[in-house]
Structures are given as C-alpha cells and as structure tokens.
Design a binder for these strands. Structure first.
Length: 200
DNA sequence: GAGATGATTAGCT
DNA sequence: GCTAATCATCTCC
C-alpha cells in the first residue's frame, strides 16, 4: 500500500527521517519496477538549517519545490554529475526535505545493475545518494513529481527497526554549515551493508 | 553575462 | 587516504 499524502505532511522532519528507515521506495520507469527499503536518510530542516538549500527563506527557481506541500520529490544536480533524490515534507511554505542516501534493493535488481553498468550485485549498487538515484532511474526529468503517482512512490510493508538497530550521526558533506553541520540529522540502519561509510 | 561553488564519487597511490 | 572530474544554479557586476 502506498503511504498517503498525510504521512508526508507531518511537521517534524527529523522524526520523519527516522521513521522512513524500513519504508520501501519504488520507481516504475519504462514499465519496469525497481526499488527496495530505505536504510539511510538525512533531514533538512527548513529555513533555520544552514545546510539546506532553502536556508534563510531563500526561494529560487530550484528551491521553490521545497516550499510546496509535502508528498512530492525534489531532484537536483550536485557537483555537476550526481543527481540526488529528496522527499519534500510538511506543509506549504515550510521547506523541509529528506535526502535518501541509501536503499537496500529488493526488486528489479538486474535492471538496477544495468543502469549502474555493473556485472554483479555489490553493496555499492545503491550506497550513496548519487548511486541511489542512478540505480532507480531517477533524473531531474521527474523533479516535483507526486509520491502518489505511478512512477515513484513509497510503501509501508510493516518492516520496522527498533531503536537498537538505528543510529544517528552528523550529516555528510555539509561542513560549510557551521554549527548546523554537527546536528545529528542523519539516520541509518546499523550493520546494513548498503549504508554508506560508518555502518556500525 | 560571467565567475564561484558544491547535500559526491570513482579511481589511483 | 586523497584528488580530479564536471556543470546547473546562484550571485554579483
């Protein structure tokens, strides 16, 4: 079952990031379904978060997606090569977003291998945000698409991780954000091989 | 209209 | 571990 729009409209983006661990994400592109469950996320906490593109209520063509109401996706390009998948949350005017950093693949693995030009399944198939987007076939062409669409959506399959299986840590690659860089807004499943770097 | 920059990754040492 | 690759977007002139 798809998660309803109301799920994405909760105000507490940090709690939601934690809750997304274990939820399944799927894309159906060219009639091929690929996906798996989420094992690593990062929260971007609106206008007060220096690491967010929308910090200080900065609204531009690119970031205006985040100001829309929760339940859509925000895809953008970083370092000129990597496309990243974010889920927009909360209500209109609150630019909260959650970066999907890692997914544990379960469906359409051969297709994902092909997209990544890999011969065999290895943990780096969907480890790291750029890899996740590439493996799932996500590009800026589907930016702002609704999570109620038939192209990308999330499902709850009643997979839960207890507190003892989940760890939090500072976010990655946000050194420029001063004191906000050390906030524990990154959540991941302990010991999952698809989680990027420190996976204990 | 031009110049700086980054929510990264792969590949080499 | 470290560094290069690489370009859309933002900011300022």
């Amino acid at each position: 079952m798809k998660l309803p729009t109301s799920y994405y409209q909760q105000d507490d983006v940090v709690a939601l990031s934690r809750d997304l661990l274990g939820k399944y994400i799927f894309t159906s592109i060219d009639d091929i379904v690929t996906g798996g469950y989420i094992v690593e996320t990062e929260a971007y906490n609106g206008i007060v978060d220096k690491a967010s593109h929308a910090y200080g209520n900065r609204k531009t063509n690119r970031t205006s997606v985040m100001f829309q109401q929760g339940g859509i996706i925000y895809v953008y390009l970083c370092y000129g090569i990597h496309e990243m998948l974010n889920i927009v949350t909360s209500s209109e005017g609150q630019p909260h977003a959650i970066l999907i950093r890692a997914v544990h693949p379960t469906d359409g693995i051969p297709v994902m291998l092909d997209r990544r030009r890999m011969a065999a399944l290895k943990p780096n198939l969907t480890r790291g945000p750029g890899s996740v987007a590439k493996a799932l076939g996500i590009s800026r062409a589907i930016n702002t698409l609704s999570l109620q669409s038939d192209v990308i959506w999330l499902e709850d399959r009643w997979l839960y991780f207890g507190d003892e299986s989940i760890a939090s840590a500072p976010r990655i690659g946000v050194d420029y954000a001063d004191e906000d860089a050390s906030l524990p807004y990154r959540f991941y499943v302990k010991g999952d091989p698809y989680v990027s770097k420190p996976n204990k």
